[in-house]
Amino acid sequence: MLRDLFINLTILVTFHYLLMLVFKENFLKKEDTLLRQVCKGMISGLLGVLLMFFSIKAGPAIIDLRHIPLILTAFYGGIAQTFIAACVVIIGRLLIEVNVASFINIFSMTFIATASFLIAERHINHVVKMLLSITISNVIATILFITVVHETTFELHVAYWIFSYIAGLFNFYVIEHQTKAYQLLNLYKSQAHYDFLTGLLNKRKFDEVLSDAFALKLKQPLHQMSLIYLDIDYFKSINDQYGHHEGDIVLKEIGTRLIKNTRSSDYIGRIGGEEFAVLLPNCSVEKTWQIAERLRRKIADQPIYLQNGTSIHITASLGCAYDTGASENIKQLPIIADQELYKAKQSGRNQVSFSKRKRDHFR
C-alpha cells in the first residue's frame, strides 16, 4: 500500500509541477482565457483518470485518489475548469466500464466538484478549506463503499482517509510553495527592471533597452531614433522646502505625465534622482520636437498637488538628440542628449534644446 501511495503522490506532484511550468503565473488565474480554462480543466480531468489506473490495493477492495485533482482545480481554477475536469473524470470512468458504480461515480464527482468550488469561494483559511473539501469527499467515498460495495472493513476506511489527506495536503503544499516562488521571482524581476517610486524603467533596464536599440540600429541603418533627457528644474529646492516625501509625489506625477504624453512604443526611464529619459524609436525629427515640447508644456502648465494640499508649479529642461538613420556614431546619442540638456539649463531652463542634427535638418 505504501508503494502505491508513493506512486500516486509522485503522479500528482509531477503533473501539478509540469502544469505550473507550462502555465506559470496563469496557472492560478481563475479569470483566464477560455482556451486556457479548457486546457487546464481537461488536463486536471485526465490526471484523475490516470489515478484510476494506479488504484491503491487495500485488501479485497481498491481505492483511488481521483477526487484530489478535482478539489485542487476547484481551489485554484474556478467553476469552469472544475466542471470540465469533473466531466473528463466521468467520461473516463464510463469508458473503463459501464455499470451501476460508474453511474454512481457521476453523482459523486459532480457533488465533490460543486462542494469543493463552494468551499473554495469562502473567505476562510486556505488550509481549512482544503481540509473541508477533502473531508466531504472522504465522507462521500465512505458512504459509497458501505452502500454500494458493502465494504465495512474499518482498516480500509482508515487507510483511505489517511491516504486522501496525505495526497491532498501534500499537493496543496507543493502548489502553494511554487506559487510563492513565482510571486517572489516576479517581484525580483520587477525590482530589477523598474523604478520603485515611479514604476518607470530604472537606469539599468533603460541602458539595456538603449543597448538593444543601438544593436538594432546597426543592423537597420535607416532606422530613425531619438533620445530625450529631461531634468526637473530646481528640484532640490522642492525637497528643501516641502520635504523628501512631497518631492517623491512630484517625481511620481512627472512619471505619470511622461507616460500619458508619449507613444506606447516609446521607452521611459528614471535614470537619476530627478532625471528622466525617453527613447523614441521610429520617430521623425518633427515628431520628436513635438513630443518634447508637449512634455515641457504638460509639466509647466499644470500644477502638482502635494499631500499637504499645496499646489506648486514646476518646470523641466529637456535635451534632445536625433539620429537620421545614416550615422554610424549611434552610441553618441546619450552624450549628445546630455549636452543638449546642459544647454537647456544654461539657457534659462524650462525649454527644449535640440541637437545640431535637428538644426542642420531645417537649413
Rank of each mutant, 00 (worst) to 15 (best):
L2V: 12
L5M: 08
N8G: 12
N8Y: 14
L9G: 15
F15Q: 04
Y17N: 13
L18H: 04
L21D: 12
E25N: 08
E31R: 14
T33K: 03
T33Y: 03
L34Q: 06
K40W: 11
G41M: 03
G41T: 01
M42P: 13
S44C: 12
G48F: 06
V49A: 00
L50M: 05
F53N: 14
F53A: 14
K57P: 07
A61E: 08
A61V: 10
I63A: 01
D64P: 12
L65R: 04
R66V: 07
L70R: 01
L72W: 05
F75Q: 07
G77N: 06
G78F: 05
T82F: 06
C87V: 00
V88S: 00
V88Q: 00
V89N: 00
V89R: 00
I90K: 00
E97N: 15
V98D: 08
V100E: 11
V100D: 14
A101I: 02
N105R: 11
M109H: 02
T110C: 04
T110D: 03
F111Q: 02
A115F: 11
A120Q: 02
E121Q: 09
V127L: 10
V128K: 07
M130V: 12
M130T: 10
L132K: 03
L132A: 10
I134W: 09
I136S: 06
I136R: 02
I140Q: 04
V148H: 08
V149Y: 04
H150N: 10
E151W: 09
F154C: 02
E155V: 13
W161S: 08
I162Q: 09
F163R: 07
F170D: 07
N171T: 09
N171K: 03
F172W: 02
Y173Q: 10
Q178C: 13
K180E: 15
Y182I: 10
L184N: 11
L184Y: 09
Y188S: 08
Y188K: 04
S190C: 05
S190N: 14
A192K: 04
L197P: 15
T198L: 06
G199A: 06
G199V: 08
L201Y: 12
N202L: 01
K205Q: 12
L210V: 11
L210K: 13
A215R: 13
L216N: 11
M225W: 01
Y234T: 10
Y234I: 09
F235Y: 15
I238Q: 02
Y242T: 04
Y242K: 02
H244V: 03
E246C: 05
E246A: 10
G247M: 07
D248C: 13
V250H: 01
L251E: 06
K252A: 10
R257W: 01
K260D: 11
K260E: 15
R263L: 11
S265H: 05
I271S: 00
G273L: 05
E275D: 00
L279P: 02
C283V: 02
V285R: 05
K287S: 14
K287L: 10
I291S: 07
R294I: 03
L295E: 09
R296M: 06
R296N: 11
R297T: 12
R297A: 07
A300E: 00
D301T: 07
D301M: 05
D301R: 06
I304R: 00
Q307M: 14
G309V: 06
S311Q: 05
G319W: 01
G319Y: 00
C320I: 12
Y322P: 12
D323T: 10
S327R: 08
I330Y: 14
Q332A: 14
Q339H: 04
K343V: 14
S347H: 15
Q351G: 05
V352N: 01
S353H: 13
R357D: 13
K358S: 07
